[in-house]
């Protein structure tokens, strides 16, 4: 089990308090009707699924009920940081490669 730091509760809490909510920082198109089927399909279905650094959403379902973001290494499962909605990650794939 992972210990995940909730940026709102400001504590490390057990993974079973959270639920995973997929890739972070996907912005909903402002005018969905202006998009082609292919563009809309990209937004709807296609995800990065990287091997390595991944920014993702977690929901503290059994805690403060807040969503937040985590930067996780999908190879090692290591969570490198968690941050609030509206904030930017400090760790990125580019940064880690350097």
């Amino acid at each position: 089990m992972l210990l995940i730091h909730c940026p709102h509760c400001r504590e490390d809490r057990e993974e079973e308090e959270y639920s995973y909510s997929g890739e972070a920082h996907i912005v909903r198109p402002l005018e969905p009707e202006a998009l082609s089927d292919q563009e809309w399909g990209d937004y709807l279905f296609f995800r990065k699924n990287p091997k390595g650094i991944h920014h993702e959403m977690w929901y503290h379902a059994v805690g403060c009920r807040r969503y937040f973001y985590a930067t996780r290494n999908t190879l090692s499962y290591e969570i490198l940081e968690t941050y609030k909605v509206g904030e930017q990650p400090q760790v990125s794939a580019q940064g880690a490669a350097q």
Partner: peptide
């Protein structure tokens, strides 16, 4: 409830 929170918190705060 989680669905409503998701959209409010992450897309339309």
């Amino acid at each position: 409830l989680a669905w409503l929170e998701l959209w409010q918190q992450t897309e339309w705060p």
